[in-house]
Simulated scan of single mutants.
Amino acid sequence: MNTLVICSGGLDSVSLAHIVAAEHRLTRLVSFDYGQRHRKELDFAAAAAHRLGVPHHLIDMRTIGAALTGSALTDDIDVPDGHYAEETMRITVVPNRNAIMLAIGFGVAAANGDNAVATAVHGGDHFIYPDCRPAFTQAFDAMQRMALDGYADVRLFTPFVERTKADIVTEGARHGTPFAETWSCYKGGAVHCGRCGTCVERREAFHLADVEDPTTYADPDFWARAVAEKEER
């Protein structure tokens, strides 16, 4: 199956790229610059494409991202610290981001003769990000079959949509993903902050998967307190 991977440069999508390269036929990585404050992640996506020997398509969506206002990922709004929680992390939603990126991904796939578009959405994202939920991915897949009917047969591949980030770490490790060569932190500093929701989730996933975390965090111990506070709610 010739498969295009939507790759941000984060742990999830880079792991998926390595998994697809091992189990299918990875054709290309597609990334998006939507004006995200942590755009350094795109360097890690480019490095993954080079490492895996496939083209890297970087799509400039900055003008679109500028119109999707109100998110801490694109505007001058503080990224909240702590474990993912609906009341705090909703500010990190970029409206319709995945739907827009996937639509472009399907167009690129169809134009290049690919059979599938893979994205690393996973179960931990469901309650905050509506365009990561199984109902969305199923509906989007059906919509794209209609959009490309008679022109191309491209399917949406979401192997982790019902699984956890710890599962991604487990499978990524099994397929040799160089986790140190991935970027998750929403704050985009010199090193991972260790305090934002995605840093906490990243560190917790390594812990649950019983895989050594090679990431350098500015605050390496914060995650345990954040997880404990979430469990007390």
Rank of each mutant, 00 (worst) to 15 (best):
K230H: 14
F157I: 10
E87M: 03
D213M: 09
A22H: 04
A49G: 01
W183I: 01
M143K: 09
E87S: 05
F140W: 14
T3V: 12
H50F: 15
T164R: 15
A228R: 12
E201P: 01
G82M: 04
D153K: 12
R202E: 10
Y34K: 03
T63Q: 06
A135Y: 14
D60E: 04
A45N: 04
A226Q: 03
T63C: 03
L29H: 11
V154G: 03
A139Q: 05
G188I: 05
P159H: 12
E231S: 04
D78W: 14
E232Q: 12
R155D: 10
C199T: 10
S13P: 01
P220I: 13
W223S: 08
M101P: 05
V169M: 07
E23D: 10
E229W: 09
T27F: 07
V191R: 00
H50Q: 15
H122A: 07
I64E: 08
D81S: 05
L11H: 00
D76H: 13
E181C: 00
G70K: 03
V54W: 13
Y151H: 10
C199R: 06
E204I: 07
R203D: 05
D125R: 07
P80F: 13
A103W: 14
E204Y: 15
S31A: 03
W223Y: 15
D43M: 10
G197I: 11
L68E: 05
A109N: 03
R90Q: 09
A46T: 06
D149P: 00
R39V: 09
E204D: 14
I104N: 11
G35S: 03
F206D: 10
C132A: 11
F160E: 11
P80D: 09
A110T: 11
R28K: 08
F222D: 02
H207N: 11
R225M: 11
T182M: 12
I19C: 01
R174I: 08
V117S: 00
I168F: 07
A67W: 15
C185T: 13
L73D: 00
A120G: 06
A85W: 15
F106K: 07
R133E: 02
Y151I: 15
L148G: 00
H38E: 04
V30T: 02
A111I: 05
P178I: 01
D153Q: 12
G124Y: 14
N112H: 13
A228Q: 11
T158G: 02
L4C: 05
L52N: 01
T69R: 15
G105F: 14
F179V: 05
A49D: 04
P178E: 03
F44H: 08
T182S: 06
A142Q: 13
P214R: 02
A72L: 06
R233T: 06
R155F: 14
T198D: 01
A47G: 08
F157V: 13
A45W: 08
D153F: 12
A17D: 02
A72T: 05
P159G: 00
S184R: 03
V154T: 11
T198A: 00
S31N: 07
G70Q: 02
M61D: 00
E232G: 03
D125V: 03
A67K: 09
H126Y: 14
W183N: 00
